[in-house]
């Protein structure tokens, strides 16, 4: 690993840690989709702080469609770091009268679609990708969906469409966390083998550890170089990956209440909060050391 890539990775790890902190900060107030947000912070950091190209006007040239409303907490967590939302605003999430929706409506700052009805984002993202290509634009379209959304038939309609139209500007990321609303995806309705299914549907597919930033970056690089096919990144994640004490406390939690409870167990917010603050401190020190080593 070159020093440049070491610094790039470390920078993204730090951004991901800050996103985890923001997710926990929001969910400690009134509860929320904390497990998904924490687990997807590595993927989210790579999307917002590496893969998408800035447009020079404070937003992005490329487009990111988050199909799974529950996972949009990572959009908020990243946009807090970008200064598009303040943490003060985001801490109102879930409160009566708050402008911050847990599953935002199209038109909310930084959101492309209304994403609360699962499975409906992939077709829209594919439509955006086709539209951008028709305009002659080189914009790339990234769509994040969950393994549970693979239960929805409309996503497979969209996959067929994307392959038929050879949308090589289209990358889907499947958050493969084996978690649905009522239990493990593998037990509610099995979706594996996902990679083979995506390949059969005409995608260039790769299964990675969705909590290993170098693997995510490698997959994005590969996706940019695939011709004539859409790309599927199957990102294996586990709920709360990145905050060990939460992961030990509730390995499967669709939602965590402000009291730390879900029907599979409960967690204490404070130890995890301290853990993520320590992680940020450590990563900042490591990044500073890398900077010093370079100078």
């Amino acid at each position: 690993m070159t020093s440049n890539s070491a610094k790039r990775t470390k920078t993204l790890e730090l951004q991901a840690a800050k996103m985890r902190r923001n997710v926990v900060d929001i969910c400690m107030q009134r509860g929320g989709y904390a497990g998904q947000g924490v687990a997807l912070s590595d993927v989210g950091a790579c999307i917002y702080f590496d893969e998408m190209r800035p447009d020079g006007n404070g937003w992005y040239h490329d487009r990111f469609v988050n199909s799974n409303g529950h996972d949009t907490i990572i959009n908020f967590a990243a946009m807090a770091e970008l200064g598009i939302y303040t943490m003060e605003e985001l801490r109102t999430m879930g409160a009566d009268g708050s402008p911050i929706d847990q599953s935002p409506i199209e038109g909310a700052r930084g959101f492309e679609i209304t994403s609360g009805s699962l499975g409906t984002g992939v077709s829209q993202a594919a439509g955006i990708a086709l539209g951008e290509r028709k305009k002659g634009s080189d914009k790339r379209v990234i769509c994040l969906l969950s393994d549970g959304e693979l239960h929805e038939g409309s996503v497979w309609e969209a996959f067929m469409f994307a392959a038929h139209y050879k949308l090589s500007n289209f990358v889907i990321i499947i958050d493969n966390n084996d978690l649905g609303a009522t239990g493990k995806t593998s037990e509610v309705m099995a979706v594996e083998p996902i990679r083979e299914k995506m390949e059969a549907f005409g995608f260039h597919a790769r299964q990675i550890n969705g909590n290993a930033i170098p693997e995510i970056l490698d997959a994005f690089e590969e996706a940019r170089n695939v011709k004539g096919k859409p790309y599927a990144m199957i990102a294996n994640t586990r709920i709360f990956a990145g905050i060990g004490v939460y992961q030990d406390a509730i390995p499967f939690a669709h939602f965590v209440g402000a009291n730390g409870r879900w029907d599979t167990g409960y967690l204490e917010w404070e130890p995890g909060w301290q853990e993520i603050l320590s992680t940020i401190e450590r990563l900042e020190a490591e990044l500073a050391a890398l900077d010093q080593g370079q100078t």
């Binding site: 492309e112 679609i113 409906t120 992939v122 077709s123 829209q124 993202a125 594919a126 439509g127 955006i128 990708a129 086709l130 539209g131 951008e132 028709k134 305009k135 038939g153 409309s154 309609e157 969209a158 067929m160 469409f161 038929h164």
Partner: peptide, 27 residues
Amino acid sequence: DQFVEVGMAEQNLVGVAAGLAKAGFVP
């Protein structure tokens, strides 16, 4: 160039249309 076929898939028909609208077209 002004025609898009999606196959026998009405959910995708409307979803893709909404995406084309978000890319500046009138589907």
